[in-house]
């Protein structure tokens, strides 16, 4: 079993504190969902875990199986087993999806141990078929001109090919039609199991109908303010966030006051 621990994480962007002490522990064989209103720091958490250069961790820890993630470069974090499906994946003109994926897979291998082209193609074809992606997509330039839904599918394709220990999925369900949502969920469920832990950021129960989470966390104002099981998400879907705010005495004006 592998564990990803986030301890009292504080993160700033451009000098503004966004995360104000996040605590979270994820094990393999677990699926966690993070929900919360817009702008409460969910993507910030994901970016800080992956090491986005714009996000500055001012205090706290991220530990992956006893190793200090914060000391690692972005590529080292990926090699250590972390994967982030981004809310807004980048477009890389001129680099084909297939070439990129092969580089990503080979980056994890020793020199001379690169995946054979045949094996790679076989695996790619199989995974793309599983995700119902047209074959020509592998020769398209990475995310260039992809629709919102195609980009999300492509993120899952990458995750399935790279096989990380922990997948962090930032709004993987946004902008997906119902068929695409089913396919993407199928991909995530396929990964589910002993060697894989997952943190899904979402606004919608809809995704969780396909992938039942083991744990649900609510983020507000840069903190995890409430955790529970799958039933917590259902209650949020039905009632919104007001009851949590009331329960915890959180005022909507907090952020505004800070800025004033």
């Amino acid at each position: 079993m592998a564990t990803l621990e986030i301890k009292d994480l504080h993160v700033e962007i451009d000098g503004k504190e966004i995360l104000k002490g996040v605590n979270l522990t994820i094990n393999t064989n677990e699926i966690h969902a993070i929900m919360g209103p817009n702008g409460t720091g969910k993507s910030t958490l994901a970016s800080a875990i992956m090491g986005h250069p714009k996000y500055e961790v001012t205090s706290g820890e991220i530990i992956l199986d006893g190793e200090n993630v914060l000391e690692m470069e972005v590529d080292e974090r990926a090699q250590a087993g972390l994967f982030l499906a981004m809310q807004y994946p980048s477009e890389i003109p001129g680099v084909t999806n297939a070439d990129f994926l092969r580089s990503a897979i080979n980056a994890r291998r020793e020199e001379g141990q690169e995946i054979s082209l045949m094996k790679f193609i076989r695996e790619l074809d199989k995974t793309m078929e599983f995700l119902e992606m047209p074959e020509e997509m592998s020769q398209r330039y990475l995310n260039e001109g992809f629709s919102g839904g195609e980009k999300k599918r492509n993120e899952i394709l990458q995750m399935m090919m790279i096989k990380p220990t922990f997948g962090i999925l930032d709004e993987i369900d946004s902008g997906l039609d119902i068929d695409a949502l089913k396919v993407v969920s199928k991909g995530i469920n396929e990964m589910r199991g002993e060697g894989f832990g997952c943190l899904m950021i979402t606004h919608y129960q809809r995704l969780l109908n396909y992938i039942t989470p083991d744990h649900v966390h609510v983020m507000m104002q840069g903190k995890v303010v409430k955790s529970g099981g799958a039933e917590l998400a259902q209650r949020l879907e039905a009632e919104g966030y007001e009851w949590i705010k009331a329960e915890l005495g959180i005022q909507d004006t907090d952020v505004v006051t800070e800025e004033a």
Binding site: M50, V74, D75, A78, L84, F100
Partner: peptide
Amino acid sequence: QLYYLMSRGISK
């Protein structure tokens, strides 16, 4: 773009 590629394990 570099961040995106590196987040897949590719060196800088």
